[in-house]
Write a protein that binds this DNA or RNA. Structure first.
Lengths: 247, 247
DNA sequence: CGCCAAGTTGAACGTGCTCAAGGGCTGTGG
DNA sequence: CCACAGCCCTTGAGCACGTTCAACTTGGCG
């Protein structure tokens, strides 16, 4: 894990070239360039934010995948969602100065670092960017809504299928998946902790999905030979807009 | 249901007098006054927003309680959360122009009406207010996080207890509850749809909570004779900041 | 080779679901 | 004033999805 001064310049941010992201104008770009105070590289498994610990920084994901999670008194853990390129990490920290979840890297990841104290200057100086922040927050809300619907109404089989459909869709649009291959090292216990299903039952249910050729796994990576079939058994219809703003 | 021109003036908004809400300065107040284009009064049970129907308006709750919900293909329904005074109704509509849930009044309610097309002017003209919007969105996220944790990790008993603790806490701080009495006509099927538990099992579990004197019900209204006991069996620790911004 | 983490599989159990019947309350109409 | 409908809640009994406990397999890595 290391922090370095902007090795990736915002002016040439590789994310902007991806189809999913909207362009910024020159003024915005220059502001973001100055707003970004550095970069954080983390290894897989390392924590970026910890529950109840207020850090001075807020991040956006430049590369890699992380997950937000919370641990209860009894030690059980709930994964809230996955953070992919373009996502904001620690928005609650920036807004309320408190955070009630941890954020851990699932893959090696690269994050852009911002000072949360200066976050307000983004609102006062660049309404377009402030609007983007809120856009991203509202989009997150939609994702959390989806998760609540899954946990509340679907059984293990549908839940896992829907989980994959959702994750794949987001991963594909942020360059972390393509051609049916999900380039994220998801283990059964992640699915277990994300969906509130025991690892044992995750295993059984996954095997059923494998037998039905909805899901495949090799070297620890999942793939989906027939994405339409996946969407169908998952009853998944994608709610996400095709393009999105970026800080 | 009727729309009338601002019978409640923002300058004398009754919500601001409540302890939970922050003050606005004169410039902000004047802007909000102009930004608000009217008021919407709805009866209990009537819908304010419908899934997939883009309306031109966005709202804030002035009085009463509503709930956001989504209906699946098979007809099952999930309540996502409850909207109480000060909450924004239809933020996703304002940001993305799409909405994937319905909003229905639980009690008779009064809403402030805003044009979603003009929402951007709030960002460009009043960064402090824009910041408030994002603050509210981030707070919502925390609430949804809590719900996900409940649905994923807790059994029916803990879920219901936590649900009440959470709802009461929010209701209390927005003036919809006091002295242990929750002034919202919640039926068993609401709990069922919010927590993914069948009405039958909700009934059984509620009776257990009643027997233990954690919960009481009279005339269809819940009350909690011992809020500390409730928080304890719910393993609830309140994540909400004591004061909050308001549009 | 041996270790450890992750996944698999079996068997028994339990929380919560389903189906079904009955009771209480409220509003409406005879 | 009673009859009846409709909604909500309650209670019982059987069932099933998912859990728990435990043993075994597999694969990566020292």
């Amino acid at each position: 894990m290391a922090t370095s001064k902007s090795s990736v310049d915002c002016l040439h941010c590789p994310l902007r070239r991806k189809k999913a992201f909207r362009e910024l104008n020159d003024g915005e770009l220059q502001f973001v360039s100055k707003f970004k105070i550095g970069e954080l590289d983390v290894d897989a498994q390392s924590s970026v934010l910890m529950e109840k610990q207020a850090t001075p920084n807020v991040y956006t994901v430049l590369e890699g995948v992380l997950y937000r999670h919370r641990t209860l008194q009894d030690g059980s853990r709930q994964i809230l969602n996955f953070s992919m390129p373009g996502d904001i990490v620690g928005l609650q920290l920036a807004m309320m100065g408190e955070i009630h979840h941890s954020v851990t890297a699932l893959t090696p990841a690269k994050l852009c670092v911002f000072e949360r104290n200066k976050f307000y200057s983004l609102f006062s100086g660049h309404p377009e960017l402030a609007h983007s922040v809120t856009w991203i927050a509202a989009t997150q809300e939609t994702l959390l809504d989806n998760t609540i619907v899954s946990l509340g109404q679907r059984n293990a089989y549908q839940r896992i299928a829907h989980f994959f459909a959702q994750v794949y869709s987001r991963a594909e649009s942020t360059g972390v998946a393509s051609d049916g291959l999900l380039n994220i090292p998801i283990r059964n216990h992640h699915i277990s902790e994300a969906l509130g299903i025991t690892p044992v039952h995750v295993s059984r249910t996954l095997n059923k999905l494998k037998r039905e050729s909805v899901v495949e796994r090799s070297n620890g990576y999942f793939s989906f030979p027939d994405l339409e079939k996946l969407a169908e058994v998952a009853a998944f219809d994608d709610h996400m807009p095709p393009t999105r703003p970026l800080l």
